[in-house]
């Protein structure tokens, strides 16, 4: 009787968890970002590498003075990545090509389903409805999981402060601009309008329209439309994206999909396994004890007279 109830409970519990997991899986797999999310379309065919966006970001976010001036072209000699002192950097590619160099601005791409957010165990990251991935430095413990999780190497780490370790990255000027519907500082300063600000959904249409109208100018792909589940920053390029330092091996599935199935098992393991194994253990023990007890009883009976 007890065993039947136990098995029944196990079956019901397992089914509930399995169903719950599946539903959750479908839901996050089809998430295409917030409908009102904003974004920026980067047209690398327009960028002239003036680095005004870097300067604007530096002033807007009140970052420390740069190591070298923002009109110093020598920084293009090496490929750079965003740091805690520079949330955005411009890199130069295709320098030897007759078509001239191609410049690419790098910053946090503000994923629809951010891996940094998923990896953060103190919930320091938030994806706002405006599309920005922001973080709360007050709860950040400086574990740097987000830096490992990010497929774009966006978060930078403030190594200078030992007492207040925080991760820093582009927040799409959320506090000062995006919240009020205004474009980020980098977009506003760009002289070439290489950066176009708007609703992400509109920008995707815009990007495909540019490709349609001038197919000789672009490769037929909008980077960030589908990569890792879609990002708020989108890119157009005149040559293959792999030639401009983009990671073209990324899957269209959000990073969370890689661990979702495994993580879905954790509650089951934690809730079912202890009960299951203690049940088995108790049953085994009961059988063992019962058998032994019976023997003793019969022995006693035998010795009674």
């Amino acid at each position: 009787m007890k065993r039947r109830n136990f098995l029944k409970a196990c079956l019901i519990g397992g089914t509930t968890i399995a169903l719950g997991k599946t539903n959750k899986g479908w839901a996050s797999g089809s998430f295409e970002g917030y409908p009102e999310a904003m974004g920026v379309l980067v047209d690398t065919t327009r960028c002239i590498g003036c680095r005004s966006c870097e300067a604007a970001c530096n002033k807007e976010q009140k970052l420390p003075e740069p190591d070298t001036s923002f009109d110093d072209p020598s920084v293009f000699e090496h490929e750079r990545r965003p740091t805690s002192k520079a949330y955005t950097v411009v890199n130069r590619y295709q320098k030897e090509q007759p078509s001239g160099p191609v410049y690419r601005k790098v910053q946090c791409n503000h994923c629809n389903e951010p891996a940094c957010l998923t990896s953060c165990f103190v919930n320091a990251y938030t994806k706002t409805k405006e599309g920005a991935v922001i973080y709360n430095s007050k709860v950040c413990v400086g574990c740097r999981n987000c830096m490992i999780a990010c497929p774009f190497n966006a978060p930078g780490y403030d190594y200078d402060s030992a007492t207040n370790p925080i991760v820093k990255k582009c927040i799409l000027c959320y506090d000062t601009r995006l919240k009020y519907g205004k474009p980020p500082a980098c977009v506003e300063i760009c002289p070439q309008e290489a950066l176009t600000f708007g609703h992400r959904a509109d920008l995707i249409k815009l990007a495909h329209e540019r490709i349609r109208a001038t197919p000789e100018r672009y490769v037929d792909h909008v980077y960030g439309e589908k990569e890792v589940g879609g990002t708020s920053w989108l890119y157009l390029a005149p040559v293959g994206f792999d030639k401009l330092g983009f990671d073209t091996t990324l899957s269209n599935d959000p990073i969370i999909s890689n661990v979702k199935d495994f993580l879905g098992m954790v509650p089951m393991v934690l809730s079912i396994w202890p009960a299951l194994f203690s049940g088995i253990h108790l049953l085994a023990k009961h059988e063992e004890q019962g058998g032994h007890g019976h023997d003793t009883d019969s022995n006693q009976e035998d010795t009674k007279p």
């Binding site: 190591d67 070298t68 001036s69």
Partner: peptide, 18 residues
């Protein structure tokens, strides 16, 4: 001031990173 031109000729950021 905006372009931090007073820092011109200083060591580029990447020199420090490497």
């Amino acid at each position: 001031a905006f372009y931090s031109t007073n820092r011109k000729g200083a060591k580029p950021a990447h020199a420090e990173e490497e």
